[in-house]
Simulated scan of single mutants.
Amino acid sequence: MNITDMLSYGFMQRALLGGSLIAILCSVLGVFLVLRRLSLIGDGLAHVTFGSVAIALLFRLQSVYNTLAIIPIVMGCSMGILKLAQRARIFGDAAIGIVSALGIATGVMLASVAGGFNVDLFSYLFGNILSISTSELGIAAALFVVVIAGVATFYNDLFASTFDEELAKSSGIDTDRINTVLVLMTALTVVLAMKVVGIMLISALLILPAATALQLARGFKTAIVSAAAFGVITVITGITVSFVLNLPTGATIVITNFALFACAFGARTLLRRG
């Protein structure tokens, strides 16, 4: 099967478009999260998403309504992580761990009540971008616009807070508001990424393109653009390879991302030695 034949399928067109949009969001936000040492927030929110999915499945909601129901829950929990870190006098990774444990425990409990782990829940755990519907693609496109607009609007403040939060605060930047914006945008992105690589692999899609870009880029804007490009390339490559070879799509995307990161790391090492 050649590329033209593959692109003739509607589900492949939706998968490639939706996957590309979500890859850009994960990659752009990933640069901020990696530099701020908050990359594990994706993993924590993924576990919260597991609990939210279990709630949606318990009430037998359709797929598109699952996404709409999950979004406010995950956004609320992202705020919980932030408030715990600010007010409970614990480090960010501990706050992520607390909310993550609560999310996964709630998910297991509700999945048991709903009748156990079924095929639907399995697809949420490991992703199924090839099954993305037109409605879900519309939601992804709308949230893509929201998140990119948020990054563009608060770019200068996000940049300042990323490199020196205390200096940003003393310069008059409302860092609490910026942190809130960042975690809420991350929550939206995590919900979307669930369809691409699944709950278990979301953190990889947030971390690897950003980490790859940071190996090669010499400026912050260059890192963001490079991360977005790497994210799109690896998602398109992963979807294509998984379709042709009949492999799990989410896992193929993550392995492709890691292969690109390994190449970038090797190139950087060689350049330093040279």
Rank of each mutant, 00 (worst) to 15 (best):
G51E: 05
I81F: 07
A88I: 04
I81G: 00
I104Y: 03
S78A: 08
R87F: 13
R60P: 10
G80Q: 08
V74E: 00
G97E: 11
M75R: 06
L102W: 10
G76W: 03
H47Q: 08
V48I: 10
A56P: 02
F50E: 00
G97I: 11
I73D: 08
L102T: 14
G44W: 04
D43L: 02
L45D: 05
N66T: 15
S100R: 02
F91C: 15
L84N: 02
A54W: 04
R87M: 10
L45R: 08
G76T: 09
I71L: 02
I96Y: 00
H47I: 05
L61H: 02
R60S: 14
V99S: 01
M75I: 11
L58W: 09
I73L: 13
I98Y: 05
T49V: 08
R87V: 10
L68F: 13
V53I: 12
L84A: 01
A85S: 12
G42M: 04
D43F: 03
I104H: 07
I73N: 06
A95T: 00
Y65M: 14
S78Y: 01
F91D: 14
S100H: 07
F91Y: 15
F59V: 15
V48E: 00
I55D: 01
S100L: 11
F59H: 12
G80N: 07
G80D: 02
G80W: 04
L45K: 01
I55H: 04
I73Y: 09
S78W: 05
L84C: 04
A88E: 07
T67M: 14
A56W: 08
S78D: 02
A56K: 03
A95C: 05
I70A: 06
S52N: 09
I70W: 05
L68V: 14
V99I: 10
A56H: 01
I71A: 03
N66Q: 15
I98A: 01
Y65Q: 15
L82E: 11
A46N: 04
M79V: 15
I90Y: 01
G51F: 00
L102V: 13
G51C: 02
L82M: 14
S78M: 02
R87T: 12
G92Q: 11
F59Y: 14
G76S: 08
A69H: 10
Q86A: 09
H47Y: 04
A85K: 11
I104P: 04
F59W: 14
Y65R: 15
L57Q: 08
Y65S: 14
A85T: 11
R60C: 11
G51N: 01
A56M: 08
F59K: 13
R89Y: 12
L102F: 11
